[in-house]
């Protein structure tokens, strides 16, 4: 593990992997998962599924639980066995319709968790996803920074009407 210039540890914790890989174009993650499946045996622990999930929130006024609505969910849980017999379980739950994508990310998850063949490429895709997330974050930061209200200007005379 290394520490980046921003103080972030690398590679990130497993709980961050899905977020990063989800930010990569699906063709890239599915292509890598297919490559891994060509080298290793991939078995579904549970059949990949897609459907809906109810999004539950506590309201911030009185703290009552309620459902805001539904979100698309896909789910996959796989076991990957490398040629040397090393086994690893991987899984993915995504807010996405594509169960093929969930399965691909579950394969990458298993591969990176036990450093199976091609885990370096899985790590590279984490980096690609991280860059995409930072770009999105920069866009949102720009919106906030551009529209931040500086109330200290009020009444200091610089923008006051002379009349």
């Amino acid at each position: 593990m290394t520490i980046s210039a921003t103080g972030e540890s690398w590679p990130p914790a497993r709980s961050q992997w899905l977020r990063y890989w989800s930010a990569v174009p699906a063709e890239q993650t599915e292509a890598l998962a297919a490559d891994i499946a060509g080298l290793c045996e991939v078995r579904d622990v549970t059949l990949p599924q897609n459907g809906l999930g109810l999004l539950k929130l506590p309201d911030s006024a009185l703290n009552d639980l309620y459902f805001l609505g539904e979100v698309p969910v896909s789910h996959a849980h796989v076991e990957v066995t490398a040629p040397d017999g090393t086994r690893s379980e991987g899984g993915a739950r995504l807010l996405d319709d594509r169960q093929s994508l969930a399965r691909a990310l579950a394969v990458l998850d298993a591969t990176l968790a036990e450093r199976l063949p091609k885990h370096e490429q899985a790590l590279d895709l984490l980096n690609t996803g991280r860059a995409a997330i930072l770009e999105t974050r920069a866009e949102r930061n720009a919106i906030l920074a551009t529209t931040r209200v500086d109330f200290s200007l009020l009444g200091d005379g610089s923008e006051d009407d002379d009349e």
Partner: peptide, 15 residues
């Protein structure tokens, strides 16, 4: 959402 293997809460997407 809980990760299918570790059970740890993992970001599944944003709304």
């Amino acid at each position: 959402l809980p990760h299918p293997v570790t059970g740890e809460l993992t970001e599944a997407g944003e709304v």
